[in-house]
């Protein structure tokens, strides 16, 4: 019971922080302006390269990738800010359940990320007339949720890293754009060189985006369940790595080994 309360309290704080982060206007701009820009840019680039008939491929891929804005930047910020504002020792010193506070930080961004994809899909629908008539909308929603969870898992890993390293944001920035290359967002994975395909298999989004593409063209749960399970598993692995790093850091900090982490 208490655990649940801590979980929701953490979520609530994260939510508040997210809004206060850059004032409401800042929040809205990052929720709408960036998605419009990204979808427009890559879809038009795709049209320039391969013709208008492929617009759907790019619009859908980028709409889905938007979840990484939350999954990566949002989560890294909410874990990493702890360090910037010097509240990490307080957190580590508190008796609250670590896993719960840790996951609470990511949860809000999962929800917000789902909202982000919804916005992205709506924009893609308006701008490029994506055809969702064959799609099972319930299944589509499940795909979006799973993608959102798995990118947040990756974010948790970088968030933990950010507690030890000073400039993880830069790396997170790079990862965000690399996802555009490797995850079948703008370039089909099959067209990547072999070593790159190997990287693709280890990243979130790859399977989820593929599953979503299939769902949009009419596939049912049975056809995509394997992909979705894989996507979820990848996210979980990253989250676990992140959590272990977090615990390790806590351990080190308590032994006085990681002063500079503060």
């Amino acid at each position: 019971m208490n655990t649940l309360r801590i979980f929701f309290r953490t979520c609530w704080f994260q939510y508040r922080a997210m809004f206060n982060w850059a004032t409401p206007i800042g929040y809205l701009s990052y929720k709408f302006l960036q998605p419009i820009g990204q979808i427009l840019f890559f879809t038009e680039l795709g049209i320039f390269a391969t013709g208008r008939s492929n617009a759907l491929y790019f619009a859908l891929g980028n709409a889905l990738q938007l979840t990484a804005i939350n999954g990566i930047f949002g989560v890294v910020m909410s874990v990493g800010n702890e360090r910037q504002f010097g509240t990490l020792p307080i957190l580590l010193g508190s008796p609250a359940n670590r896993l719960v506070t840790f996951l609470g930080r990511a949860f809000v961004h999962v929800i917000d990320g789902i909202a982000g994809v919804a916005v992205g899909l709506a924009l893609a629908l308006v701008m490029f007339q994506i055809d969702l008539s064959h799609a099972n909308l319930g299944l589509l929603a499940i795909c979006v949720c799973i993608i959102s969870l798995s990118t947040a898992g990756l974010g948790l890993m970088f968030g933990s890293l950010s507690l030890i390293m000073r400039d993880v944001f830069v790396i997170a920035n790079g990862v965000y754009y690399l996802l555009l290359v490797f995850c079948g967002i703008n370039i089909p994975v099959s067209r990547l060189p072999e070593w790159a395909q190997l990287i693709s298999t280890g990243l979130p989004l790859t399977r989820g985006v593929q599953a979503t593409r299939e769902v949009v063209s009419g596939a049912g749960l049975a056809q995509v369940s394997g992909l979705l399970a894989g996507e979820l598993a990848i996210g979980l692995v990253y989250a676990l790595i992140g959590y272990s790093m977090f615990r390790w850091l806590e351990h080190q900090a308590r032994r006085g080994g990681l002063q500079e982490a503060y």
């Binding site: 004032t23 206007i25 800042g26 701009s29 990052y30 302006l33 960036q34 840019f41």
Partner: peptide
Amino acid sequence: WRWAFSVTNGFEIGVYV
């Protein structure tokens, strides 16, 4: 305005277009 930066920042990719 403190928010001006986040607005223009969000607009960055749009400018590429």
